[in-house]
Simulated scan of single mutants.
Amino acid sequence: MSYRELRTITELARALAYPRLISIENFRTPNFALVAEMLEWIVKRFEPSALVSADCVNEQERVIFIKACVTMLLQNARIKLNPKKLYQADGYAVQELLVPMRILHSATRQRPSEELNAQWTAMKATLGARMREVTVARQLSSQLPQVGALLNDLLQKDLYMRRERARATSRTVSVQEAERSLKLTIAAVETERKETEEKIANIDSDERSLDEKIERKRREFDHMQKRYAKLQSYRPAHMDEYERYEEKLKAAYELYVIKFRNLTYLRQLQSELERADQQRAIEAERSMRETVEKLRLEQLNQKDAIEDEMEMLPVFQPPPEAQRAVKVFGNMMGAGLSDEDEDDSDEDHPGASGLAEEEEEEEVERFGAVQLDDDDKQVMSSGDEF
């Protein structure tokens, strides 16, 4: 919204002879009544037979009015407006109203010349004459089948009528026969006259009977009107109780609606809490698995490190004198060597076992004994499952 747009719409309204004065300050704040009045005036300028009214009481009527006006402008003038901006009824509505008003103003500025008027008048006269010719030709074409059929029937009857004419002209009529035919004709006319006189004489009685019927129907109508008035003023016996129960039903329905909304909201909260608890359980399980896997990897790394250090320790080699003093007896199956001989060999070389025990004690002192408590054992057992 700008000052130029506000000034332009006021000048266009004045140029287009809008029925009331418009000020720039009218659109500083939302003014739906003025916007609706201007929109109705614009729509009727494009379509004089449009059935729209700017008398809107509630929001629903306003929405229906805006939609109807926008649809009519789109269908009749191919003008596309934004209904949301029109509903705001402020400076943004001015931007939308300027579009049709500029089109109306440009149409008023284009004045046709006299030559164009003369050509347009001649063209309209020619078109009118051609249209009248087309209408007459259409009527004549619709009558052609009927006239042709009638002419065909008359031509077929002409043969019979020709013979009858020839016979009638060739025959001589006697005076007695002519007199008899005239008497018959006079008698038929006299009978018809008497019937007509009887009908004329019965007109009075018919009028009286019709008047009686009209009076009877009028009395019945008045009676029905009085009865209708009584029925309108009559109040049924249980109407008070019906109204009381109707009020109770309305109150119960309002309470039902409130409880239904609360129940729906609580169910939604419950589902959200269950979803959050499930997400927390998944996150806790994932973190536990990561912790167990991390502990398992650390223990494996410690074990590998211990094994590497054990491999790096020097291997004990007995002295050459001890190697030469060892004697082997018997064969591979153990024959020829008894338990006493083994005991003697151990007693003869006590230094070998002592050296092995000293090496084990040094390794324990250097690396320490790797012991696992109960929690570490459970963690290791759970890590093995993964």
Rank of each mutant, 00 (worst) to 15 (best):
K217A: 12
L140E: 14
V52N: 03
D240G: 08
E5T: 02
E5A: 07
I214W: 09
A15W: 04
E179P: 00
Y160Q: 15
V379R: 02
E360L: 15
P319S: 12
R109F: 09
C69P: 03
Q317N: 05
E357V: 05
R244P: 00
A322Q: 01
Y234T: 15
T191H: 11
E212N: 10
M288E: 14
F316W: 14
L98H: 01
E212C: 01
K294S: 14
Q225C: 04
S233N: 13
V292A: 05
K157V: 00
E47V: 13
E362I: 12
F32N: 06
V94F: 04
D375A: 08
R162H: 11
R286K: 15
A322T: 07
L159A: 13
Q268W: 05
A36F: 01
Y234D: 12
E25P: 02
K84W: 03
L86Y: 02
I186L: 15
G334K: 02
H223D: 15
P30H: 03
D204T: 07
Y234E: 13
S23T: 14
E363C: 13
Y18V: 01
E285H: 12
A356V: 11
L210Q: 06
A187T: 03
Q268G: 12
R216G: 11
A325G: 06
E114N: 11
T8E: 03
D240T: 11
K44V: 09
S205L: 12
F316S: 06
R366C: 07
R366I: 03
L51F: 10
T29M: 08
K199N: 04
P319I: 02
K67Q: 05
V35K: 00
A137G: 07
D339S: 15
T121D: 15
K377G: 00
Q299Y: 07
D384G: 08
A356F: 07
Q95P: 04
I79W: 01
T108C: 11
N82C: 11
M72E: 05
Y242C: 07
E11W: 06
L300C: 02
R286H: 09
S381Y: 08
S287L: 15
G330W: 05
K44E: 07
K377R: 09
A281R: 13
G128H: 01
M332F: 02
Q270V: 10
D158I: 08
Q323I: 07
Y3S: 06
E362Q: 13
S181E: 10
L269A: 06
L6V: 02
P145H: 06
S113Q: 12
Q75D: 09
E243S: 01
R267D: 14
E307I: 02
E197A: 08
S382R: 15
G368Y: 05
L97K: 00
A276K: 10
V364W: 05
R280H: 09
E197W: 00
R219L: 09
E360T: 12
L144S: 12
H223I: 11
Y234H: 14
